[in-house]
Design a protein around this nucleic acid. Structure first.
Lengths: 234, 234
DNA sequence: TGTATTTTTCGTGTCGACAAGTTTTCGACC
DNA sequence: GGTCGAAAACTTGTCGACACGAAAAATACA
Protein backbone atom coordinates (compact mmCIF):
# COMPACT_ATOMS: atom_id res chain seq x y z
CA UNK A 1 0.00 0.00 0.00
CA UNK A 2 1.81 3.12 -1.21
CA UNK A 3 0.76 6.31 0.48
CA UNK A 4 1.52 9.65 -1.06
CA UNK A 5 3.13 11.97 1.45
CA UNK A 6 0.96 15.07 1.86
CA UNK A 7 -0.16 15.41 -1.72
CA UNK A 8 -1.26 18.97 -2.56
CA UNK A 9 -4.56 17.59 -3.89
CA UNK A 10 -5.67 16.86 -0.33
CA UNK A 11 -5.06 20.39 0.91
CA UNK A 12 -8.01 21.65 2.87
CA UNK A 13 -9.17 24.95 4.17
CA UNK A 14 -8.86 25.81 7.81
CA UNK A 15 -11.87 24.68 9.80
CA UNK A 16 -12.85 21.81 7.54
CA UNK A 17 -10.45 19.25 8.94
CA UNK A 18 -12.83 17.66 11.43
CA UNK A 19 -15.68 17.57 8.97
CA UNK A 20 -13.39 16.00 6.38
CA UNK A 21 -12.26 13.17 8.64
CA UNK A 22 -15.73 12.69 10.05
CA UNK A 23 -17.31 12.18 6.66
CA UNK A 24 -14.62 9.81 5.43
CA UNK A 25 -14.82 7.64 8.53
CA UNK A 26 -18.59 7.76 8.59
CA UNK A 27 -18.82 6.57 5.01
CA UNK A 28 -16.24 3.87 5.50
CA UNK A 29 -18.04 2.59 8.58
CA UNK A 30 -21.46 2.56 6.95
CA UNK A 31 -20.12 0.93 3.80
CA UNK A 32 -18.36 -1.69 5.91
CA UNK A 33 -15.00 -0.71 4.47
CA UNK A 34 -14.28 -0.60 8.18
CA UNK A 35 -16.20 -3.61 9.47
CA UNK A 36 -17.55 -3.73 13.02
CA UNK A 37 -14.76 -4.31 15.50
CA UNK A 38 -12.03 -2.74 13.38
CA UNK A 39 -9.56 -0.78 15.46
CA UNK A 40 -9.04 2.82 14.39
CA UNK A 41 -5.46 3.95 14.78
CA UNK A 42 -5.19 7.70 15.18
CA UNK A 43 -1.59 7.94 14.04
CA UNK A 44 -2.17 5.79 10.98
CA UNK A 45 -5.21 7.88 10.06
CA UNK A 46 -3.25 11.07 10.64
CA UNK A 47 -0.59 9.91 8.20
CA UNK A 48 -3.10 8.69 5.65
CA UNK A 49 -4.97 12.00 5.61
CA UNK A 50 -1.76 13.95 6.18
CA UNK A 51 -3.00 15.94 9.11
CA UNK A 52 -2.43 16.12 12.84
CA UNK A 53 -4.14 13.87 15.37
CA UNK A 54 -6.15 16.69 16.92
CA UNK A 55 -8.87 17.02 14.26
CA UNK A 56 -8.98 13.25 13.95
CA UNK A 57 -9.64 12.82 17.64
CA UNK A 58 -12.42 15.40 17.49
CA UNK A 59 -14.02 13.54 14.61
CA UNK A 60 -13.82 10.33 16.63
CA UNK A 61 -15.54 12.01 19.58
CA UNK A 62 -18.35 13.01 17.27
CA UNK A 63 -18.64 9.51 15.82
CA UNK A 64 -18.67 8.08 19.34
CA UNK A 65 -21.54 10.41 20.18
CA UNK A 66 -23.50 8.93 17.30
CA UNK A 67 -22.69 5.41 18.40
CA UNK A 68 -20.70 4.52 15.29
CA UNK A 69 -17.45 3.96 17.16
CA UNK A 70 -16.71 2.89 20.70
CA UNK A 71 -13.85 4.39 22.67
CA UNK A 72 -11.97 2.04 24.96
CA UNK A 73 -10.23 4.24 27.55
CA UNK A 74 -6.48 4.35 27.13
CA UNK A 75 -6.82 1.75 24.42
CA UNK A 76 -7.89 1.83 20.82
CA UNK A 77 -11.23 3.07 19.60
CA UNK A 78 -13.04 0.51 17.48
CA UNK A 79 -15.94 0.52 15.03
CA UNK A 80 -19.06 -0.29 17.04
CA UNK A 81 -20.43 -3.77 16.77
CA UNK A 82 -23.95 -4.41 15.60
CA UNK A 83 -25.93 -5.53 18.59
CA UNK A 84 -27.70 -8.61 17.26
CA UNK A 85 -29.01 -9.52 20.70
CA UNK A 86 -31.18 -6.42 20.96
CA UNK A 87 -32.26 -6.20 17.36
CA UNK A 88 -35.92 -5.90 18.32
CA UNK A 89 -35.28 -2.51 19.90
CA UNK A 90 -33.77 -1.39 16.63
CA UNK A 91 -36.67 -2.68 14.54
CA UNK A 92 -39.17 -1.17 16.94
CA UNK A 93 -37.61 2.28 16.71
CA UNK A 94 -37.10 2.01 12.96
CA UNK A 95 -40.74 1.11 12.36
CA UNK A 96 -41.96 3.97 14.53
CA UNK A 97 -39.73 6.47 12.76
CA UNK A 98 -40.87 5.22 9.36
CA UNK A 99 -44.44 5.87 10.42
CA UNK A 100 -43.94 9.20 12.16
CA UNK A 101 -41.81 10.77 9.46
CA UNK A 102 -44.10 9.65 6.66
CA UNK A 103 -47.11 10.94 8.57
CA UNK A 104 -45.53 14.33 9.09
CA UNK A 105 -44.43 14.48 5.48
CA UNK A 106 -48.05 13.99 4.42
CA UNK A 107 -48.96 16.85 6.72
CA UNK A 108 -46.28 19.39 5.95
CA UNK A 109 -44.73 18.56 2.57
CA UNK A 110 -44.18 21.44 0.17
CA UNK A 111 -44.18 21.07 -3.61
CA UNK A 112 -40.38 21.28 -3.51
CA UNK A 113 -40.26 18.43 -1.01
CA UNK A 114 -42.39 16.29 -3.27
CA UNK A 115 -40.05 16.91 -6.15
CA UNK A 116 -37.04 15.78 -4.16
CA UNK A 117 -38.85 12.70 -2.91
CA UNK A 118 -39.89 11.79 -6.44
CA UNK A 119 -36.38 12.09 -7.80
CA UNK A 120 -35.04 9.92 -4.98
CA UNK A 121 -37.68 7.35 -5.76
CA UNK A 122 -36.64 7.42 -9.42
CA UNK A 123 -33.06 6.73 -8.37
CA UNK A 124 -34.18 3.82 -6.26
CA UNK A 125 -36.28 2.42 -9.10
CA UNK A 126 -33.29 2.70 -11.41
CA UNK A 127 -31.11 0.78 -8.96
CA UNK A 128 -33.72 -1.96 -8.87
CA UNK A 129 -33.93 -2.08 -12.65
CA UNK A 130 -30.19 -2.46 -13.01
CA UNK A 131 -30.16 -4.97 -10.12
CA UNK A 132 -27.51 -2.97 -8.29
CA UNK A 133 -27.97 -4.15 -4.73
CA UNK A 134 -25.55 -1.65 -3.23
CA UNK A 135 -27.23 1.24 -5.00
CA UNK A 136 -30.61 -0.04 -3.82
CA UNK A 137 -29.46 0.19 -0.23
CA UNK A 138 -28.14 3.73 -0.48
CA UNK A 139 -30.93 5.14 -2.65
CA UNK A 140 -33.53 3.58 -0.37
CA UNK A 141 -31.94 5.42 2.53
CA UNK A 142 -31.99 8.70 0.63
CA UNK A 143 -35.63 8.23 -0.30
CA UNK A 144 -36.75 7.87 3.28
CA UNK A 145 -34.41 10.61 4.46
CA UNK A 146 -36.06 12.97 1.96
CA UNK A 147 -39.46 12.07 3.37
CA UNK A 148 -38.22 12.76 6.88
CA UNK A 149 -36.88 16.14 5.74
CA UNK A 150 -40.31 17.01 4.41
CA UNK A 151 -41.75 16.20 7.86
CA UNK A 152 -39.66 19.07 9.28
CA UNK A 153 -39.03 17.66 12.73
CA UNK A 154 -35.30 17.76 13.49
CA UNK A 155 -35.64 15.45 16.51
CA UNK A 156 -37.23 12.68 14.48
CA UNK A 157 -34.90 13.34 11.59
CA UNK A 158 -31.83 12.93 13.76
CA UNK A 159 -32.91 9.63 15.24
CA UNK A 160 -34.17 8.35 11.91
CA UNK A 161 -30.92 9.09 10.09
CA UNK A 162 -29.04 7.25 12.78
CA UNK A 163 -31.33 4.26 12.45
CA UNK A 164 -31.13 4.31 8.66
CA UNK A 165 -27.34 4.30 8.79
CA UNK A 166 -27.36 1.44 11.25
CA UNK A 167 -29.75 -0.39 8.93
CA UNK A 168 -27.47 0.24 6.01
CA UNK A 169 -24.66 -1.52 7.81
CA UNK A 170 -26.86 -4.55 8.40
CA UNK A 171 -28.12 -4.67 4.83
CA UNK A 172 -24.56 -4.44 3.55
CA UNK A 173 -23.70 -7.59 5.43
CA UNK A 174 -26.48 -9.53 3.81
CA UNK A 175 -26.93 -7.71 0.54
CA UNK A 176 -25.65 -10.65 -1.47
CA UNK A 177 -28.81 -12.52 -0.58
CA UNK A 178 -31.11 -9.89 -2.09
CA UNK A 179 -33.47 -11.71 -4.37
CA UNK A 180 -35.16 -10.23 -7.39
CA UNK A 181 -38.75 -10.35 -6.37
CA UNK A 182 -38.86 -8.18 -3.26
CA UNK A 183 -37.15 -5.05 -4.61
CA UNK A 184 -39.85 -4.54 -7.21
CA UNK A 185 -42.40 -4.74 -4.44
CA UNK A 186 -40.51 -2.03 -2.61
CA UNK A 187 -40.71 0.22 -5.64
CA UNK A 188 -44.48 -0.23 -5.68
CA UNK A 189 -44.76 0.42 -1.96
CA UNK A 190 -42.68 3.57 -2.33
CA UNK A 191 -45.04 4.75 -5.05
CA UNK A 192 -47.91 4.24 -2.63
CA UNK A 193 -46.14 6.29 0.02
CA UNK A 194 -45.49 9.14 -2.40
CA UNK A 195 -49.12 9.15 -3.50
CA UNK A 196 -50.36 9.29 0.09
CA UNK A 197 -47.94 12.11 0.90
CA UNK A 198 -49.03 14.04 -2.16
CA UNK A 199 -52.70 13.53 -1.32
CA UNK A 200 -52.00 14.69 2.26
CA UNK A 201 -53.71 11.54 3.46
CA UNK A 202 -52.10 11.23 6.88
CA UNK A 203 -53.87 8.09 7.98
CA UNK A 204 -53.05 6.29 4.74
CA UNK A 205 -49.43 7.44 4.87
CA UNK A 206 -49.15 6.07 8.38
CA UNK A 207 -50.68 2.74 7.43
CA UNK A 208 -48.56 2.26 4.31
CA UNK A 209 -45.41 3.24 6.18
CA UNK A 210 -46.17 0.67 8.87
CA UNK A 211 -46.67 -2.02 6.22
CA UNK A 212 -43.52 -1.02 4.42
CA UNK A 213 -41.56 -1.13 7.66
CA UNK A 214 -42.86 -4.60 8.42
CA UNK A 215 -41.77 -5.75 4.98
CA UNK A 216 -38.26 -4.47 5.51
CA UNK A 217 -37.96 -5.82 9.01
CA UNK A 218 -39.15 -9.23 7.85
CA UNK A 219 -36.74 -9.23 4.95
CA UNK A 220 -33.78 -8.44 7.18
CA UNK A 221 -34.89 -11.16 9.57
CA UNK A 222 -35.13 -13.65 6.72
CA UNK A 223 -31.74 -12.67 5.35
CA UNK A 224 -30.21 -13.17 8.74
CA UNK A 225 -31.89 -16.52 9.26
CA UNK A 226 -30.74 -17.69 5.81
CA UNK A 227 -27.22 -16.51 6.47
CA UNK A 228 -27.17 -18.29 9.81
CA UNK A 229 -28.17 -21.54 8.14
CA UNK A 230 -25.41 -21.08 5.60
CA UNK A 231 -22.88 -20.44 8.31
CA UNK A 232 -24.01 -23.53 10.17
CA UNK A 233 -23.86 -25.53 6.94
CA UNK A 234 -20.22 -24.57 6.49
CA UNK B 1 -14.64 36.44 40.94
CA UNK B 2 -11.46 34.95 42.42
CA UNK B 3 -10.24 31.84 40.72
CA UNK B 4 -7.88 29.52 42.47
CA UNK B 5 -4.91 28.73 40.25
CA UNK B 6 -4.69 24.98 39.71
CA UNK B 7 -5.76 23.85 43.15
CA UNK B 8 -4.65 20.28 43.91
CA UNK B 9 -8.25 19.40 44.78
CA UNK B 10 -9.12 19.51 41.08
CA UNK B 11 -6.46 17.00 40.08
CA UNK B 12 -7.96 14.38 37.84
CA UNK B 13 -6.88 11.04 36.52
CA UNK B 14 -5.75 10.65 32.97
CA UNK B 15 -8.63 9.95 30.61
CA UNK B 16 -11.30 11.67 32.67
CA UNK B 17 -10.62 15.18 31.48
CA UNK B 18 -13.18 15.25 28.67
CA UNK B 19 -15.87 13.65 30.80
CA UNK B 20 -15.16 16.13 33.57
CA UNK B 21 -15.55 19.19 31.36
CA UNK B 22 -18.52 17.70 29.52
CA UNK B 23 -20.49 17.12 32.71
CA UNK B 24 -19.75 20.54 34.14
CA UNK B 25 -20.76 22.35 30.97
CA UNK B 26 -23.80 20.13 30.46
CA UNK B 27 -25.09 20.86 33.96
CA UNK B 28 -24.39 24.56 33.66
CA UNK B 29 -26.22 24.74 30.35
CA UNK B 30 -29.25 22.80 31.57
CA UNK B 31 -29.43 24.80 34.79
CA UNK B 32 -29.20 28.02 32.79
CA UNK B 33 -26.06 29.04 34.65
CA UNK B 34 -24.97 29.47 31.07
CA UNK B 35 -28.07 30.94 29.44
CA UNK B 36 -28.81 30.41 25.74
CA UNK B 37 -26.54 32.53 23.59
CA UNK B 38 -23.67 32.69 26.10
CA UNK B 39 -20.32 32.50 24.38
CA UNK B 40 -18.03 29.76 25.64
CA UNK B 41 -14.42 30.86 25.67
CA UNK B 42 -12.06 27.91 25.44
CA UNK B 43 -9.10 29.71 26.96
CA UNK B 44 -11.13 31.04 29.88
CA UNK B 45 -12.55 27.59 30.55
CA UNK B 46 -9.09 26.07 30.31
CA UNK B 47 -7.86 28.46 32.97
CA UNK B 48 -10.87 27.95 35.19
CA UNK B 49 -10.56 24.18 35.14
CA UNK B 50 -6.77 24.37 35.01
CA UNK B 51 -6.33 22.12 32.03
CA UNK B 52 -5.36 22.42 28.38
CA UNK B 53 -7.73 23.39 25.61
CA UNK B 54 -7.60 19.98 23.94
CA UNK B 55 -9.96 18.08 26.29
CA UNK B 56 -12.20 21.13 26.46
CA UNK B 57 -12.55 21.23 22.70
CA UNK B 58 -13.41 17.54 22.63
CA UNK B 59 -16.09 18.08 25.24
CA UNK B 60 -17.49 20.92 23.13
CA UNK B 61 -17.62 18.67 20.07
CA UNK B 62 -19.65 16.20 22.08
CA UNK B 63 -22.00 18.90 23.34
CA UNK B 64 -22.41 20.18 19.80
CA UNK B 65 -23.39 16.67 18.72
CA UNK B 66 -26.15 16.73 21.31
CA UNK B 67 -27.30 20.14 20.16
CA UNK B 68 -26.54 21.88 23.44
CA UNK B 69 -23.95 24.22 21.94
CA UNK B 70 -23.52 25.65 18.47
CA UNK B 71 -20.12 26.08 16.90
CA UNK B 72 -19.64 29.18 14.77
CA UNK B 73 -16.70 28.40 12.45
CA UNK B 74 -13.58 30.38 13.28
CA UNK B 75 -15.58 32.26 15.87
CA UNK B 76 -16.83 31.43 19.32
CA UNK B 77 -19.05 28.50 20.22
CA UNK B 78 -22.21 29.56 22.02
CA UNK B 79 -24.87 27.86 24.11
CA UNK B 80 -27.64 26.86 21.71
CA UNK B 81 -30.72 29.02 21.67
CA UNK B 82 -34.13 27.57 22.38
CA UNK B 83 -36.00 27.54 19.11
CA UNK B 84 -39.31 29.07 20.07
CA UNK B 85 -40.46 29.23 16.48
CA UNK B 86 -40.51 25.47 16.06
CA UNK B 87 -41.73 24.54 19.49
CA UNK B 88 -44.45 22.31 18.10
CA UNK B 89 -41.86 19.90 16.74
CA UNK B 90 -40.41 19.67 20.22
CA UNK B 91 -43.77 19.07 21.85
CA UNK B 92 -44.67 16.52 19.21
CA UNK B 93 -41.53 14.50 19.78
CA UNK B 94 -41.74 14.87 23.55
CA UNK B 95 -45.29 13.58 23.64
CA UNK B 96 -44.46 10.61 21.45
CA UNK B 97 -41.47 9.69 23.59
CA UNK B 98 -43.54 9.97 26.76
CA UNK B 99 -45.98 7.49 25.28
CA UNK B 100 -43.51 5.06 23.75
CA UNK B 101 -41.23 4.82 26.75
CA UNK B 102 -44.11 4.39 29.20
CA UNK B 103 -45.62 1.73 26.96
CA UNK B 104 -42.38 -0.21 26.78
CA UNK B 105 -41.86 0.15 30.51
CA UNK B 106 -45.24 -1.48 31.09
CA UNK B 107 -44.13 -4.28 28.81
CA UNK B 108 -40.61 -4.94 30.01
CA UNK B 109 -40.23 -3.51 33.53
CA UNK B 110 -38.49 -5.73 36.07
CA UNK B 111 -39.18 -5.56 39.81
CA UNK B 112 -35.92 -3.65 40.21
CA UNK B 113 -37.07 -1.10 37.62
CA UNK B 114 -40.30 -0.57 39.51
CA UNK B 115 -38.40 0.09 42.69
CA UNK B 116 -36.27 2.77 41.04
CA UNK B 117 -39.31 4.38 39.46
CA UNK B 118 -41.13 4.43 42.81
CA UNK B 119 -38.24 6.08 44.61
CA UNK B 120 -37.96 8.72 41.88
CA UNK B 121 -41.66 9.37 42.22
CA UNK B 122 -41.23 9.74 46.00
CA UNK B 123 -38.53 12.33 45.40
CA UNK B 124 -40.80 14.23 43.04
CA UNK B 125 -43.67 14.12 45.54
CA UNK B 126 -41.34 15.46 48.22
CA UNK B 127 -40.28 18.35 45.99
CA UNK B 128 -43.95 19.21 45.46
CA UNK B 129 -44.67 19.04 49.18
CA UNK B 130 -41.84 21.40 50.00
CA UNK B 131 -42.82 23.62 47.05
CA UNK B 132 -39.30 23.49 45.67
CA UNK B 133 -39.87 24.35 42.01
CA UNK B 134 -36.31 23.67 40.94
CA UNK B 135 -36.33 20.26 42.59
CA UNK B 136 -39.67 19.50 40.91
CA UNK B 137 -38.12 20.08 37.53
CA UNK B 138 -35.10 17.85 38.09
CA UNK B 139 -36.92 15.04 39.92
CA UNK B 140 -39.63 15.01 37.28
CA UNK B 141 -36.93 14.47 34.68
CA UNK B 142 -35.40 11.63 36.69
CA UNK B 143 -38.78 9.98 37.12
CA UNK B 144 -39.44 9.79 33.40
CA UNK B 145 -35.86 8.85 32.65
CA UNK B 146 -36.24 5.89 35.01
CA UNK B 147 -39.37 4.80 33.15
CA UNK B 148 -37.50 5.04 29.85
CA UNK B 149 -34.68 2.93 31.29
CA UNK B 150 -37.19 0.27 32.18
CA UNK B 151 -38.38 0.28 28.57
CA UNK B 152 -34.91 -0.91 27.53
CA UNK B 153 -34.71 0.75 24.13
CA UNK B 154 -31.48 2.76 23.87
CA UNK B 155 -32.65 4.61 20.75
CA UNK B 156 -35.76 5.97 22.44
CA UNK B 157 -33.84 6.59 25.63
CA UNK B 158 -31.25 8.70 23.86
CA UNK B 159 -33.78 10.91 22.11
CA UNK B 160 -35.95 11.16 25.21
CA UNK B 161 -33.10 12.26 27.45
CA UNK B 162 -32.21 14.93 24.96
CA UNK B 163 -35.80 16.16 24.87
CA UNK B 164 -36.09 16.08 28.65
CA UNK B 165 -32.95 18.17 29.02
CA UNK B 166 -34.24 20.65 26.48
CA UNK B 167 -37.52 20.76 28.39
CA UNK B 168 -35.65 21.37 31.62
CA UNK B 169 -34.09 24.45 30.12
CA UNK B 170 -37.49 25.79 29.13
CA UNK B 171 -39.06 25.07 32.50
CA UNK B 172 -36.16 26.80 34.22
CA UNK B 173 -36.94 29.95 32.36
CA UNK B 174 -40.52 29.97 33.53
CA UNK B 175 -40.32 28.08 36.80
CA UNK B 176 -41.15 31.17 38.83
CA UNK B 177 -44.69 31.03 37.49
CA UNK B 178 -45.32 27.51 38.82
CA UNK B 179 -48.56 27.65 40.65
CA UNK B 180 -49.54 25.36 43.49
CA UNK B 181 -52.43 23.50 41.98
CA UNK B 182 -50.88 21.75 38.99
CA UNK B 183 -47.92 20.07 40.68
CA UNK B 184 -50.20 18.02 42.95
CA UNK B 185 -52.07 16.90 39.85
CA UNK B 186 -48.76 15.75 38.38
CA UNK B 187 -48.08 13.65 41.46
CA UNK B 188 -51.42 11.95 41.00
CA UNK B 189 -50.81 11.39 37.31
CA UNK B 190 -47.42 9.91 38.05
CA UNK B 191 -49.07 7.51 40.49
CA UNK B 192 -51.41 6.44 37.71
CA UNK B 193 -48.48 5.81 35.37
CA UNK B 194 -46.68 3.71 37.98
CA UNK B 195 -49.81 1.67 38.61
CA UNK B 196 -50.28 1.00 34.89
CA UNK B 197 -46.63 0.00 34.52
CA UNK B 198 -46.86 -2.31 37.49
CA UNK B 199 -50.07 -3.89 36.16
CA UNK B 200 -48.39 -4.33 32.77
CA UNK B 201 -51.38 -2.58 31.23
CA UNK B 202 -49.79 -1.33 28.02
CA UNK B 203 -52.85 0.38 26.58
CA UNK B 204 -53.56 2.19 29.83
CA UNK B 205 -49.93 3.23 30.21
CA UNK B 206 -50.01 4.67 26.71
CA UNK B 207 -53.23 6.56 27.34
CA UNK B 208 -52.14 8.00 30.66
CA UNK B 209 -48.76 9.01 29.25
CA UNK B 210 -50.47 10.83 26.39
CA UNK B 211 -52.72 12.69 28.84
CA UNK B 212 -49.78 13.52 31.07
CA UNK B 213 -47.81 14.82 28.10
CA UNK B 214 -50.71 17.02 27.05
CA UNK B 215 -50.89 18.46 30.56
CA UNK B 216 -47.22 19.35 30.55
CA UNK B 217 -47.27 20.78 27.04
CA UNK B 218 -50.27 22.91 27.92
CA UNK B 219 -48.65 24.14 31.09
CA UNK B 220 -45.50 25.18 29.30
CA UNK B 221 -47.59 26.93 26.68
CA UNK B 222 -49.53 28.78 29.36
CA UNK B 223 -46.37 29.78 31.19
CA UNK B 224 -44.96 31.18 28.01
CA UNK B 225 -48.12 33.06 27.15
CA UNK B 226 -48.27 34.52 30.64
CA UNK B 227 -44.64 35.53 30.47
CA UNK B 228 -45.13 37.14 27.10
CA UNK B 229 -47.95 39.24 28.47
CA UNK B 230 -45.75 40.33 31.35
CA UNK B 231 -42.98 41.28 28.99
CA UNK B 232 -45.35 43.30 26.87
CA UNK B 233 -46.71 44.99 29.99
CA UNK B 234 -43.24 46.21 30.91
C1' DT C 1 -19.15 64.61 13.09
C1' DG C 2 -19.87 60.48 10.45
C1' DT C 3 -18.02 56.93 7.44
C1' DA C 4 -14.55 54.03 5.10
C1' DT C 5 -10.17 51.70 5.65
C1' DT C 6 -6.30 49.94 7.91
C1' DT C 7 -4.36 48.01 12.00
C1' DT C 8 -4.55 45.63 16.13
C1' DT C 9 -6.35 42.35 19.10
C1' DC C 10 -8.38 38.30 20.18
C1' DG C 11 -9.96 33.36 19.76
C1' DT C 12 -10.17 29.39 17.21
C1' DG C 13 -7.96 25.50 14.31
C1' DT C 14 -3.98 22.84 13.85
C1' DC C 15 0.41 21.09 14.93
C1' DG C 16 4.41 18.56 17.10
C1' DA C 17 5.99 16.84 21.43
C1' DC C 18 5.77 14.78 25.90
C1' DA C 19 3.59 11.83 29.62
C1' DA C 20 0.94 7.98 31.13
C1' DG C 21 -0.91 3.61 30.45
C1' DT C 22 -1.41 -0.82 27.75
C1' DT C 23 0.19 -4.47 25.05
C1' DT C 24 3.85 -7.12 23.36
C1' DT C 25 8.34 -8.92 23.56
C1' DC C 26 12.14 -10.66 25.71
C1' DG C 27 14.56 -12.95 29.30
C1' DA C 28 15.02 -15.30 33.67
C1' DC C 29 13.73 -18.99 36.34
C1' DC C 30 11.45 -23.32 37.43
C1' DG D 1 9.96 -26.51 27.36
C1' DG D 2 6.72 -23.72 29.91
C1' DT D 3 5.52 -19.96 32.99
C1' DC D 4 6.11 -15.82 35.35
C1' DG D 5 8.02 -11.18 35.50
C1' DA D 6 10.48 -7.17 33.71
C1' DA D 7 11.53 -4.14 29.99
C1' DA D 8 10.63 -2.24 25.49
C1' DA D 9 7.45 -0.64 22.01
C1' DC D 10 3.44 1.40 20.90
C1' DT D 11 -1.00 4.16 21.49
C1' DT D 12 -3.62 7.23 23.73
C1' DG D 13 -4.40 11.62 26.61
C1' DT D 14 -2.70 16.08 27.44
C1' DC D 15 -0.01 20.04 26.79
C1' DG D 16 2.07 24.52 24.99
C1' DA D 17 2.83 27.03 20.81
C1' DC D 18 1.96 28.88 16.35
C1' DA D 19 -1.02 30.33 12.26
C1' DC D 20 -5.13 31.78 10.26
C1' DG D 21 -9.44 34.49 10.34
C1' DA D 22 -12.71 37.41 12.21
C1' DA D 23 -14.25 41.12 15.16
C1' DA D 24 -12.88 45.42 17.37
C1' DA D 25 -10.15 49.50 17.59
C1' DA D 26 -7.74 53.12 15.64
C1' DT D 27 -6.87 56.13 11.95
C1' DA D 28 -7.73 58.75 7.71
C1' DC D 29 -10.83 61.17 5.04
C1' DA D 30 -15.09 63.57 3.51
Amino acid sequence: MTKQPSSPATERKRGEGVKFVYEILRDEIIDLVLPPGSPIDEIQLAERLSMSRTPIREALVRLAGEGLVTTLPNRSTVVSNIDFLNLHTFFDALTLMYRVTTRLAAEYRSPADLEVIRSRQAEFAHAVETQDALAMISTNREFHAAIAEAGRNPYYLGLFLRLLDEGRRMLRIYYSSFDDRLPQQYVDEHDGLVAAIEARDIALADRLAAQHADQIVNQIRQMMARDRRQQIAL
